[in-house]
């Protein structure tokens, strides 16, 4: 369970100080599905990065299962990301020179698995997102939707506690968007992980049971009884 208390993140922009997050308090339960929405520059991605241990707050605490990520040493924070967090990015962020299977394997490298185990698990993960026939394909040989599926397989192959997705459908057309959302929602249901997603897309946001809107670093929480 995530417990955020007074999370503040300030950036220096020239002589000015900008509050990306201004005292955010938020609790996210295990297995929750949450969407973060808001205008550009409102602090959505910053909040997601705090939750994923990619950045540290200027003030406040971010506890996951009682461990304050803000105070973890760098090495332990890296280990935490390797074991507990799955990321899906808007631009897929696949390594262009590695094929689909090798890209998925990159998430298993920090876990110290043997090469054969890595290959096997990567193949299984790609099968689960419907890309079992595309293991040896390079990102450049796949469509945007297929690339995002590879990214999802990479995020989930290590069985993380939390899946963080930053505009996962932002670079996709409508049909691809629905396809990817179906995959993500299926995985969330099957694996029982905590799924937090940043999106601009209101139609996607409406599908989530809980919506966090963030403006100028401050959040408002909306419970959605009409969630899909």
């Amino acid at each position: 369970m995530y417990q955020l208390r007074g999370v503040t993140k300030q950036y220096r922009r020239g002589k000015d100080t900008v509050d990306a997050l201004a005292g955010v308090d938020l609790t996210i339960g295990d297995g929750d599905r949450l969407v973060i929405q808001g205008p550009t520059g409102g602090g959505k991605s910053t909040l997601l990065q705090m939750l994923g241990g990619l950045d540290r707050p200027t003030a406040g605490s971010i506890e996951l299962d009682g461990v304050d990520l803000a105070k973890l040493p760098e090495a332990r924070l890296t280990k935490f990301r390797a074991e507990s967090i799955g990321f899906v990015f808007q631009s897929f962020n696949l390594i262009p020179t590695l094929n689909a299977q090798e890209n998925v394997e990159t998430a298993l490298v920090p876990l110290g698995l043997k090469a054969a185990d890595r290959r096997e698990r990567a193949a299984q993960a790609l099968n689960s997102v419907g890309l079992g026939e595309r293991l040896g394909h390079l990102p450049s040989e796949m469509s945007g939707g297929q690339q995002q599926r590879v990214a999802i397989a990479r995020a989930l192959v290590k069985n993380p506690k939390v899946l963080l997705a930053d505009e996962p459908t932002g670079n996709l057309d409508e049909s691809m968007r629905d396809e990817i959302m179906d995959v993500l929602e299926t995985m969330w249901k099957e694996l029982g992980l905590t799924f937090i997603m940043v999106t601009h897309d209101s139609s996607i946001a409406r599908r989530a049971p809980r919506l966090v809107t963030i403006r100028k670093g401050r959040i408002t929480i909306t419970e959605n009884s009409k969630a899909v």
Partner: peptide, 16 residues
């Protein structure tokens, strides 16, 4: 930068 940032996000240590 994005490639290495992604790898670090996936849990790759700086040393690796």
């Amino acid at each position: 930068v994005r490639e290495f940032g992604t790898l670090k996000a996936l849990g790759w240590k700086s040393g690796r």
